[in-house]
Design a protein around this nucleic acid. Sequence first.
DNA 1: CTGTTAGCGCGTTCAT
DNA 2: ATGAACGCGCTAACAG
Lengths: 334, 334
Amino acid sequence: MKNITIGEVAEQAKVSKSTVSQYLNKRYEYMSEATRKRIEAAIEELNYHPNIVARSLKQKSTFTVGVIVANILHSFSTQILRTIENDLNKTGFHVIICNADDQPEKERNYIEMLLAKQVDGLIIFPTGGNIDLYEQMKKKNFPVVFMDRKIEELGIDTVMLDNHQAARMAISEFVESDYTKISIITTSIIRNTSPRVERIEGYKAAMTEHGLPVLPEYIKTADAEDLQGVLQELFALEAPPEAILAGNDIVLIEVLKFAKEHRLAIPGDVAVIGIDEVSFASFYTPPITVVAQPTIKMANKATELLLEQINSENKTARTAIYRLQPSLIKRDSC
Amino acid sequence: MKNITIGEVAEQAKVSKSTVSQYLNKRYEYMSEATRKRIEAAIEELNYHPNIVARSLKQKSTFTVGVIVANILHSFSTQILRTIENDLNKTGFHVIICNADDQPEKERNYIEMLLAKQVDGLIIFPTGGNIDLYEQMKKKNFPVVFMDRKIEELGIDTVMLDNHQAARMAISEFVESDYTKISIITTSIIRNTSPRVERIEGYKAAMTEHGLPVLPEYIKTADAEDLQGVLQELFALEAPPEAILAGNDIVLIEVLKFAKEHRLAIPGDVAVIGIDEVSFASFYTPPITVVAQPTIKMANKATELLLEQINSENKTARTAIYRLQPSLIKRDSC
DNA sequence: CTGTTAGCGCGTTCAT
DNA sequence: ATGAACGCGCTAACAG
């Protein structure tokens, strides 16, 4: 019923605890063949498994990292999560997944709990609402990497999309197809998260470059539940947009719903490009053109950076923001 | 740089460690207002946070549970995961997520590691390949609940869909629309997982009830990458099916791809019903009829059962299989 | 009300 | 080659 300990193994094998410990840590150099066999047998017989918690207490390493996503509803998050989990497990780490739900208070809680649990590192999609905590970890040299969003002036490794480029690619694509009335819609969160801001900036820059006017009424931001209303407004305009850039998968879905309900032909009545690849893009009618994030590469990079931090003693770790390039997947919605 | 301990707080506050411990555990009944304040101040000043690992070592509880999904690629898994995480976090538990990738060896590894890490309980989508481990946990009275798949004769709490009913609902729907040549396609895994088997059984039973022949060539099972081939075969038949029941979201996607590529009109050339709700079902062209699993309820039930087990000392826990009912979401693909 | 003491399970010198 | 003893950070009697 109860868990057996190293002591009981030692007893069973007629040796001392430390000898068993040696064995467990594969330091059998100074150990007779005979005792080794005995220990092996004892472990087998008792079905002994070392208590990692106790080991962690001593060794200061739990082989566990925490991942805090801003919002688990985005397909982007789950894709990233999937490959982080995969990468990290290969290295023998477990990952505790937490969903901050875009709420800084939740994020704060998670960070504190995870630190108290002595995780070896953290990958965070920061809400931006806990600068003090971020700074504290940075100062303590605790392994952290940010994903998707950057927090300026903090010097924390960050991997994110080249959002400017993502917006540009989409706009160029629209322009090539001779659309000029182009709208961008993003989901809003209270804080000005960098992806949202940057995508809008990129949109503006690209529009200007193409000699197109930047009209505020074409730039929309709303919570998921208000998206239909926003779309109503957009199409009630005197000059409704001919093309919509959906800032993420959730927006894209709402746009497609709207188009369906209002019998707007894509791309006839309105062209659409989404940021973030979605499961149905390739076989939708029409197939949806999309600017895809290199989620696998991003996740790989993040775990790589984190492991580097975890395994390096030197505090002179140079930090950087890694911007990965999006790719346009041309299909027929534009 | 280093973490501060309860000892340093005690020192700072001029009391003993145990008094600080009392304070931390909110047992300030027998503590002078003054010392309480001092401790509070010391904690604040030192920015002290208790080391949960050390606490766990003593208390035998890590407030962490592990969830091992069979295959994280299924939307069903991620939906379940999402609400388990949510439910459990409300109760102060963290969740370590592992993806067994349908490989029993991986599952075995995860179970052993998680147990060694002293998690308080496990929710498993069992591969079925580690009966000995399951039995062992059961015997030790270790909190476990199975999700989605049952392992017979083990007496472990299990929450799963009424798969028979799911298949029946779909078949009835097809029959009501006068389809008679009905095929079912599922993804295969080496082991005979119960959902797959039960859905096929349900299909057969329903077909028979409706006086329809059960044709082996209409019952297909394949890995995701072979699904297109299977569909080829199906439509190369002398009497190709008029309707397809897709056993899960992955199959559904492949069916829709196939239909698109081969210009098969839905439901004109082939009617389709999927098991598992998908993000695009409601606004696809045509909107896809689907048998949805009550994922939220299932996850709620699982965490409820797990917490019950964790919080109960009595080993007379009666166990059961909880079958939740699917619901048909009628749309236009059939 | 507060301090002393003794573990929790394991790893690590330091002797032997 | 092996064992005794101590410490990791915290909790829990038990004194006082």
